[in-house]
Design a protein around this nucleic acid. Sequence first.
RNA 1: GGCGAGAUGGCUCAACUGGCUAGAGCAUCCGGUUCAUACCCGGAAGGUUGAGGGUUCAAGUCCCCCUCUCGCUACCA
Length: 653
Amino acid sequence: MKDKYYITTAIAYTSGKPHIGNSYEIVLADCIARFKRKQGYEVFFQTGTDEHGQKIELKAEEAGVTPKQFVDEVAGEIKSICDCLNVSYDKFIRTTDADHEKQVQKMFKKFYDQGDIYKGSYEGMYCTPCESFWTQAQLVDGKCPDCGREVKPAKEEAYFFKMSKYADKLIDYINTHPDFIQPVSRKNEMMNNFLLPGLQDLCVSRTSFKWGIPVDFDDKHVVYVWLDALSNYITGIGYDVDGNSSDLYKKMWPADLHLIGKDIVRFHTIYWPIFLMALGEPLPKQVFGHPWLLSGDGKMSKSKGNVIYADDLAAFFGVDAVRYFMIHEMPYENDGSISWDLMTERVNSDLANVLGNLVNRTISMSNKYFDGIVEDKGVAEAVDEDLKNVAKGTYAKVCSKMDELKAADSITEIFTLFKRCNKYIDETEPWVLAKDDAKKDRLATVLYNLTESIVIGASLLWPFLPATAEKIVESLGTSIRDYSDLDKFGLYTKTKVTDKPEILFARMDINDVYAEAARIAEIQKAQAGVTEAEDDENAIELKLKDEITYDDFAKMQFAVGEIVKCEEVPKSKKLLCSQVKIGNTTRQIVSGIKQYYKAEEMVGKKVMVLVNLKPATLAGVVSEGMLLCAEDQDGNLALMSPEKNMPSGAEIC
RNA sequence: GGCGAGAUGGCUCAACUGGCUAGAGCAUCCGGUUCAUACCCGGAAGGUUGAGGGUUCAAGUCCCCCUCUCGCUACCA
């Protein structure tokens, strides 16, 4: 009986169209899934969308549609990118699916009933600036263990999951399963930063918005993101809390691989395993936090016009060229980079020159010398042996690389075979053989060996570039070979190849590429212009806090301050310490703005200061107030200055 | 600040527990070839392996220190 293999990707948040960095994961997962299927595994490949949350609720409101209408639209867009990239998922789950929602509610109830989830009812233990709840035991001298400040009553009633209860068990699991977290550097981060210092309880419900799965026994609350989103991996294959799980679930769980981005490793290797422990279900075998594919020329942004979308690239270069690039360029542990130059280089050098030209010249020779009939006449020579050995040995090499999830190395192995084929042509010189009638049979064997090698290579290539692989074998009059036969040579039977070989990958002129990049940049910039005027996916959504009274406001006192001196705070990455003249006094204020302002350029600025804030000590330095800044989505900061020149000490009211 | 990773030819990366003239791809230059998408094949050049010190018969590989980069985390009044 065949082994099963259950692979998942993270589910995409339905707040907007994902760029190429987010499409990498799904393509890598697809390559692995396709490869495993060819190896004979019974594969189940799940992806999907994460559709709840306040952000979506707000966006829908802005768009004047219901949240459901909004996510239907975006989920459709995400699904179409998957389909465009030829992703062979077995299930596309949406967290708004009724069966998912039902099971999440049941999980929540089960956790509550067994005491893993408790209602946050403690007063005076919420640290507002840290946005963290603390238990009595965690407090240090009755204060926030993080910042040492006073903790206050919780503003929002919420349910919490007792993570600490399972922490030891999880630490033990991670230590006894060295392959669980990949790459291993992530394991150290999780251990050192979260598990060993003591795991904090996780907030698993919200009352501040409605667009979520309702807690069925307390309808003020909706289930907060992680419990909802993570459980898709089991609800999608038919898990049932009450023990009536599907056959698919019984067969497929635990997952063999959760493929995720490195930013959410923490949730998949700490919270998710603990939820599973609480359910009494086995833990996934492996979580791989892959690196990012980043734009070569800085951070992608629409206003710069350098956001790269998979479908734009696919429309210009072709789907398989994009898949090839993503897989080839992505290293295992560090971020990879993508640019139009790099993309062009890969297409021309590897796909057009090495692969495309190889197939083309081989088919052309078969047509020219044998009217397209490829047949082994049995005239072997010593020079054939090396080609045959490489062809027969490639499968094993690719297997071992794929087992380590090193898709880039796998595809390189396959191209080593294609390069060997090109060399074989040079070694055997078919055009010379063709001039001598006595060598006709030898020529036939040479072309047979080439064709056979290409069939093997194309079969191996199929998981990565499915459409291209199929085109190749089809043009050779055959089909993708069984993987159990990939270590054999000589299975190709006498066949007629296509009359006219198709150009698999056209060489790209770099100037045409630049023109296309410029065209797309213009479109994006134009869209970004609209974005600012109206509301679009790039618009910042302000999360509204609780309403305050005028009295609340009046408690705060703001004034214009002039920075007379500023220096970096030693031992701190982000802090600048400024001496700020406010009227006839000067006070010291520490601010976390080092990344955006140099100490020298601070001097002389007039800024808005919150003056009656209780002094605090930061990194050992006393701070007596706060410089006010505007902050955008990416964390960029800008100091607030009076729009006309005003004297320092002028009150802002 | 805490923990961790890394710094190798123009570019992207290799080199298991220290061991033969530090490898490969791309780019460059030279040569060969013509079946093919001006392609393919071969060859060459290019590195005092971030700086310095140490251990050893032998170090990119181990130890110390320095510089820089990066990840996670804390802090960001």
